[in-house]
Amino acid sequence: MNSKTDDLLRQFELADAADRSVSTYSGGMHRRLDLAMSLMGNPPILFLDEPTTGLDPQSRIAVWEKIKDLVKDGRTVFLTTQYLEEAEQLADYIVILHKGKIIAEGTLEELKKRFPPAKVEYVEKQPTLEEIFFALVDGKEDAQ
């Protein structure tokens, strides 16, 4: 392997599995490998089609962080997703499609301004299942 390959395998936490057949990789590992391979030629523009579909919460967050890093490094990333939370977290500019037609586009702030303002209500916020998962996993990893 060359240094670029080694570097990408380390970045995507695949170095320990480098000598294994890709057919033995988990779904999350496949997604990370796809993203790593797309970066081999240092492309200035990336097209990512639902890069986090089927990933566990930790892998999903890791892919989000990598996408954010790519944008910080000056790359343009076109991302398709059905997860609206993902679009809110990652997109600078959003295009909403419905039945194959663009029905809205703009920044998140622009889109929010086009609709009625949020209502102010008192709601007791319970932790989400994702927050519970990370609290459990983070606690166990710290104990080891």
Score class of each variant (00 low, 15 high):
residue 129 L to M: 14
residue 36 A to H: 00
residue 66 K to T: 02
residue 84 L to M: 14
residue 95 V to C: 13
residue 37 M to F: 03
residue 98 H to F: 13
residue 62 A to M: 09
residue 9 L to S: 02
residue 73 D to C: 14
residue 8 L to Y: 00
residue 114 R to N: 14
residue 105 E to V: 03
residue 134 F to L: 14
residue 35 L to Y: 00
residue 104 A to D: 10
residue 11 Q to A: 11
residue 119 K to A: 07
residue 90 L to W: 01
residue 63 V to A: 01
residue 78 F to Q: 13
residue 136 L to M: 15
residue 68 K to T: 03
residue 42 N to R: 08
residue 115 F to L: 14
residue 29 M to T: 04
residue 128 T to Y: 12
residue 110 E to D: 12
residue 135 A to T: 14
residue 95 V to A: 10
residue 16 D to A: 08
residue 90 L to K: 02
residue 72 K to P: 06
residue 90 L to N: 01
residue 57 P to C: 09
residue 130 E to A: 15
residue 17 A to N: 06
residue 71 V to L: 10
residue 40 M to G: 02
residue 70 L to Q: 02
residue 136 L to F: 15
residue 49 D to K: 02
residue 142 D to M: 07
residue 15 A to D: 12
residue 52 T to N: 01
residue 70 L to W: 03
residue 14 L to W: 00
residue 64 W to H: 09
residue 118 A to P: 07
residue 93 Y to F: 07
residue 92 D to K: 04
residue 16 D to N: 04
residue 73 D to P: 03
residue 91 A to H: 12
residue 77 V to E: 02
residue 126 Q to I: 10
residue 37 M to L: 11
residue 31 R to F: 03
residue 123 V to W: 13
residue 55 L to C: 05
residue 82 Q to S: 07
residue 18 A to C: 13
residue 131 E to A: 11
residue 118 A to V: 09
residue 92 D to P: 05
residue 30 H to R: 13
residue 28 G to K: 04
residue 101 K to P: 05
residue 114 R to I: 09
residue 90 L to S: 02
residue 47 F to P: 02
residue 83 Y to F: 14
residue 38 S to R: 00
residue 30 H to L: 13
residue 73 D to S: 14
residue 15 A to K: 05
residue 77 V to D: 01
residue 55 L to G: 00
residue 29 M to H: 05
residue 89 Q to C: 13
residue 62 A to W: 06
residue 62 A to C: 04
residue 102 I to M: 04
residue 62 A to E: 10
residue 101 K to W: 09
residue 26 S to A: 06
